Amino acid sequence: MSRIGKHPVEIPAGVQVTLADNLLTAKGKLGELKAVVSDDVDVVVESGKVVVSLVEGNKRSRQQWGATRTQVANLVAGVSNGFTKELEINGVGYKAAVQGKEIVLSLGFSHEIRYPIPAGIEVKCEKPTSISIKGADKQQIGQMAAEIRAFRPPEPYKGKGVKYAGEEILRKEGKKK
């Protein structure tokens, strides 16, 4: 069983963490993030650390312990450093571009796909075949990357489609004569 919950979360310089009722708020140079903390665990902010501990006699407390600690760590890391997700586009004529507040994707369909960029997220396309998504909220960045990838997931024969940077595509052998 994982014991990630017993490690306290260090608060870096320039980040303020406050706990009011069950709402944990982290403020830093990249913005402000909030998370609701479960009643099943005890969260204490003390001397530059956030400590998540178990509530005795509560079975659900052990289930929420590591998840809550990881959520707190993601809030602190997000407002101090931020998170980045990279996507690669493979295929003849497949490309992406940022126009205003939306991404325009040409993925082999008869029409362009226009995906609106949510507030608080920065998207760059240095090359027409790469997309870089950056922001403070790890969940929001991962969700956006997954939705863009779902428009044209990579296929196993030629590898065409949208994939995460570094993702290995299992390739299949084509039909033989």
Rank of each mutant, 00 (worst) to 15 (best):
S2F: 05
R3W: 11
R3G: 13
G5I: 01
K6L: 11
K6W: 08
H7D: 08
H7T: 12
P8I: 09
E10Y: 07
P12V: 10
V15T: 08
Q16Y: 07
V17P: 05
A20L: 13
A20T: 14
L23K: 14
K27W: 02
K29S: 12
G31C: 01
L33K: 00
L33F: 02
K34A: 08
K34G: 07
A35W: 00
V36H: 06
V37S: 00
V37D: 00
S38E: 00
S38P: 00
S38N: 00
D39T: 10
V41R: 01
D42A: 09
D42Y: 05
V43I: 05
V44K: 09
V45I: 12
G48L: 06
V51Y: 01
V51N: 05
V52N: 07
V52P: 06
V52W: 07
S53Y: 03
L54W: 02
V55G: 04
G57F: 09
N58D: 14
K59M: 13
R62E: 06
Q63G: 03
Q63H: 07
Q64W: 09
A67Y: 01
A67V: 07
T68H: 06
Q71C: 08
V72P: 02
V72Q: 03
V72Y: 04
L75Y: 03
L75F: 02
L75W: 00
L75V: 02
V76G: 02
V79C: 07
G82P: 02
G82I: 06
G82D: 01
K85H: 14
E86A: 10
L87I: 13
L87E: 09
L87S: 11
I89Q: 06
G91H: 14
K95Y: 14
A96D: 10
A96K: 09
A96N: 11
A97H: 06
G100Y: 13
G100R: 15
G100P: 13
E102R: 15
I103V: 15
V104T: 15
L105A: 14
L105F: 11
L105P: 10
S106G: 13
L107G: 11
G108D: 14
G108I: 14
G108S: 13
G108V: 15
S110M: 15
I113L: 15
I113Q: 13
R114K: 15
P116M: 08
P116N: 09
P118Y: 05
I121L: 10
E122N: 12
K124L: 12
K124Y: 08
C125S: 14
C125K: 03
E126Y: 06
K127V: 09
K127G: 08
T129S: 10
S130E: 12
S132F: 13
I133T: 11
I133K: 08
I133C: 13
K134A: 14
G135H: 02
G135A: 04
A136H: 09
A136V: 10
K138N: 13
K138E: 14
Q139L: 12
Q140K: 12
I141D: 06
G142K: 04
G142A: 10
M144E: 00
M144T: 03
A145P: 00
A145Y: 00
A146N: 04
A146T: 04
E147F: 01
R149C: 06
F151V: 05
P154W: 04
E155R: 08
P156G: 05
K160L: 05
K160I: 05
V162K: 02
V162E: 04
Y164G: 10
G166T: 03
G166H: 01
E168R: 10
I169W: 11
L170T: 04
R171Q: 01
R171N: 00
E173A: 06
E173F: 02
G174H: 06
K175W: 10
K176H: 03
